[in-house]
């Protein structure tokens, strides 16, 4: 999400004859972030991070199941700074995406649909994600 331009460009909603010099009112640059919006955006970001999981897990598995030398190389790589960083990043994203994903599925199924519950569950997801970030860092370092 980039800061919106002030003049009309990008998404133009209106019909052709109204594409005048009217400015587009500010949107993402001024809108206040609240719990549910943050939870949704964090779900998106963590999802993008988790795309990393696919090749990383593949490389780790193929290393771990090859020769004994490959096995110890792979474990050494996991303990290297880059390996720890990736495990931390992917692990935190995984836990947040999992918790908030369950929240989304429960909402899709029609549970906890009041305004207060939606706000509360967003705060819960964010807190769980933050806890995962901290706890995993403690475990890995």
């Amino acid at each position: 999400m980039q800061v919106s331009p002030k003049t009309v460009q990008g998404t133009v909603h209106n019909t052709d004859n109204q594409r005048s010099a009217r400015p587009l009112s500010p949107r993402v640059s001024v809108y206040r972030w609240r719990g549910p919006m943050l939870a949704s955006f964090a779900h998106r970001i963590s999802g993008v991070v988790l795309v990393l999981f696919v090749p990383v897990y593949l490389c780790l598995l193929s290393g771990l199941t090859a020769s004994a030398a490959d096995f110890s190389d792979t474990i050494n790589w996991m303990h290297s700074p880059l390996g720890r960083l990736l495990l931390w990043l992917i692990g935190s994203a995984l836990i947040y995406h999992l918790v908030n994903g369950m929240r989304f599925i429960l909402l899709d199924a029609g549970f906890s649909e009041t305004r207060e519950e939606m706000r509360g569950s967003a705060r819960f997801s964010l807190a769980a994600g933050l806890a995962a970030v901290v706890l995993l860092a403690v475990y890995l370092w």
Binding site: P36, F41, H43, R44, F104, L107, G110, E113, A122
Partner: peptide, 24 residues
């Protein structure tokens, strides 16, 4: 995508996110 800004903004206390979920 359940961003829920609609629910937060509605001055009448309605919940469009819930309505959209019901449609789905």
């Amino acid at each position: 995508h359940q961003i829920m800004n609609c629910m937060e903004a509605c001055p009448k206390g309605l919940n469009p996110t819930a309505a959209i979920n019901h449609l789905k």
